[in-house]
Amino acid sequence: MERQKISARFSELRERKEGALICYVMAGDPSAEKTGEIVKALVNGGADIIELGFPFSDPVADGPTIQVAGQRALSAGMDTQRYFELIKTLDVGIPLVCMTYYNPVFRYGVEKFVEKAADAGISGLIVPDIPVEEAADLKSSCEKHGLDLIFLIAPTTTEGRVRKILERGSGFLYLVSRLGVTGAREDVSSSTRELLSRVETGLPKAVGFGISTGKQAAEVRDAGADAVIVGSAFVKIIEEGKDVNERLEALASELKSGIRRAS
């Protein structure tokens, strides 16, 4: 199935004055077959973009929820080849983004990984342990194969670094709402507001880390975000394993109604 590019999705949403819901799940958790159903439920609930994690044994930027999801996916046999096969077969028209760490990409071969990803119908790549300074190879491969390379900006990122990141990033900007690792939390921090206001860019601004409810999504939208990224809250539902598809769809729908409204 032909999939939309990230930029096309955002311009469509902009016309409708809607914010985007970006959902993260770990590919192959609990199994490759289940990932197909999970993705469908998220689409039904209103996901605009789906990030599919490729598991890594040592995920330093992730909290316990996603760490354990990665271990489950690895135990279930997820590997590079199966990942690309899975992505290819997913029956979705919205943009798909691959999120992983640099070593699996590097080991597979940067150019080859990006080429296979593009071939499988992935529109963008997020690699949280590669700062702009080390990303030259990855960036040129992504440009060659038409993939967006999405960078993160943290509350600690200095103005100088923000400029460097804006020069190289594409697709959208991933703003880390607070210090720490991924994982659901109670409130939306003031550092999110501060970060949204100080980063000036034409790229869509997506806020992630710690968002799990429609109310939080609405707050982030009101603070000026173009999108919210939600991961651990979905992964937790998958971990619990009860009425998974129904609950994923319901949560996606709640989050989407939070982010939908005009900012």
Binding site: V60, Y102, D129, P131, F151, T156, T157, T158
Partner: peptide, 14 residues
């Protein structure tokens, strides 16, 4: 060598 770390740590390394 190099610095392959999450963005949040880059300022700390600097």
């Amino acid at each position: 060598g190099g610095q392959y770390v999450p963005e949040v740590l880059m300022p700390a390394l600097e």
